[in-house]
Nucleic acid binder design. Sequence first.
DNA 1: GTGGTCTAGACCACG
DNA 2: GTGGTCTAGACCACC
Lengths: 136, 136, 136, 136
Amino acid sequence: MISISLASDVPIHDQLVAEIRRLIAAGTIAAGDELPPVRQLAADLGINLNTVARAYRDLTDAGLLSSSRGRGTVVMSGTERPTGEPAQVRRRIESSISSALSDAKLAGLSRDQTRDLINTMMARLWGPSCEEGASP
Amino acid sequence: MISISLASDVPIHDQLVAEIRRLIAAGTIAAGDELPPVRQLAADLGINLNTVARAYRDLTDAGLLSSSRGRGTVVMSGTERPTGEPAQVRRRIESSISSALSDAKLAGLSRDQTRDLINTMMARLWGPSCEEGASP
Amino acid sequence: MISISLASDVPIHDQLVAEIRRLIAAGTIAAGDELPPVRQLAADLGINLNTVARAYRDLTDAGLLSSSRGRGTVVMSGTERPTGEPAQVRRRIESSISSALSDAKLAGLSRDQTRDLINTMMARLWGPSCEEGASP
Amino acid sequence: MISISLASDVPIHDQLVAEIRRLIAAGTIAAGDELPPVRQLAADLGINLNTVARAYRDLTDAGLLSSSRGRGTVVMSGTERPTGEPAQVRRRIESSISSALSDAKLAGLSRDQTRDLINTMMARLWGPSCEEGASP
DNA sequence: GTGGTCTAGACCACG
DNA sequence: GTGGTCTAGACCACC
C-alpha cells in the first residue's frame, strides 16, 4: 500500500511522509486506525527502523499522527489537526499547488500531460470522476 | 508581479521561491533575464534583505538561477538545468503533486474546489484553457 | 476554570495539559480530586473528545493523573509522583525555565515585560505576592 | 559555552536545542554567526554526530538556524523568524512560562526558590538586574 | 571541508 | 510488544 523508491533523490523519510499523508487524505487509513509498528514497516519496505521512525515523528509533529511508547502509532482525528485560520490554510494550499505545477512545467510537461497526471492522482484521492471519462 | 503574505505561516523565503518558480515556469521571466538586485526586491516587498538573499540562494542551489558578484542574478536556460533521469523526474513530479493534493484534501477542500483552484493556477502558468470557460 | 484558545498555534491538547498542570500546581484541584469525564470536559470546551483524552493520557503518563475504567480520573498525591533524584529534578526545572525565558526574549519581550508576565503567573500559582503590589 | 548532561532524562538533542536557543536569546551568538560544525560540536561534547545534527535540524525547522551543505550552519536574522501574529506569540509565551512555573511548584520549589532561580536565569539572558541586588 | 541521509545495532521506558 | 534515543560508521552532494 505504501510505495517507496530507494533510487529516488527524494529522501526516503520524505517519501514516506508523503505516502502516509496521501493514505490519510484518501481515507484509506482513517482517524483512530493504527499504523504498522516502525519495525514492521521498516522490514516490509526493506529500510531502516530509524528512517520509518523519523517519518512517524515528522507526522506526529505535524499533528497527523499520535504515537506513544508501548501503544503504537494511530491517526489523529481531524479535529485535532491544527489547521489555522481559513485564509492561512487557503494560502498554504495555493502555495503547495503552485509549487507542484511549476515543478511540472519546469520539467517540461505539457498542459495536457500535467492535467492527466493530476486527474489520475485526484481519482486516487477522491475516487473516479464522472467528468473526465466522457469527453475525450 | 510577486505577491508575498507576511501574515502567512509559510516562511517568506519559501513564498518567494514559489513565486519566482511560478514566474519562470509561466515564462514571464525567461532564461537570461536578470532578476532585480536583492536590495531592490527586498525594499519593493518590504521584507528583509536576508530573506530575499536566501530565496535567491535556494533557487541557485536548485539550478534555476545563477548569481555572481557584479553580474547580478540571471535565470538559467532550461537546458542547463540539472533534471536527472526521466524516471526520477517523473517520480519527483508525482510526489510533488501528490503532496499538494493531499494537502488540499486534508484541509477539507472538496474535489471541485481543488479542481477549480488547480484550473485557475494552470491558467496562470500555461495561459487560459479552452475547456473550462467559453469567454477567453 | 480552564481556558483554551482554538486560534492558537499551540496544539489544543498541549494547552489542556498546561492548564491542568497549572490548576494542580495552584492547588485549585488537589490530590484525590476527580477530574470531569472526558466527554463532559470536551463538551464544555467545545473540543473533540479525543483531544481531552490525549491530554488526560499525557498527564497520566507523566504521573500526575490516574485513570481507570469506572473510577474516573483522579489527581495523584504528590508523594506518589515519580520525581527522580533531586539533581535531576533541579536540572529539569532549570531547563524548563531556561526555555521559557529564551522563548520570551526571542519573541522580543523586554526584561520588564517578561518580569511582569512572570509575576502575574506566579500570583496565580502561589497567591498574590507582598512585594509587587501594595493593594492585595 | 554549551552544557549538556548525559545523566539527565531530558533527551540530549532537546537539551542542545534549549542551550542554543538560550545562547541566541542572550545574544552570545547573533544573527549571521556560524555555529560549530556538527562533527566538531559532537566531539567537543562527547556525543554523536547525529545527535547534534538532529538538534540543528530541529532549530532549522523552527527558523532559528539556517544550514546548507558545504556552507555550515548560521543563525538566522530576527526578521526571518516566523513569529506569527502578536496575540499568538503572547499566548505561546504565556503557555511556556505557565508550564515552567507549574513544573517548579509541582517539584516542591517554594515561591522564593522559584523567584531566585528565575532571577538568576534572567540575569544570564538580559544581564544583571539593578533591582534584585539591593533589597535582600 | 560542510551538512544530510541511511544503516546497523544497542539500550531504555512504557504497557 | 511498542516507540524513543543514542552510537558508530558509512556514503552522498555541495562548496
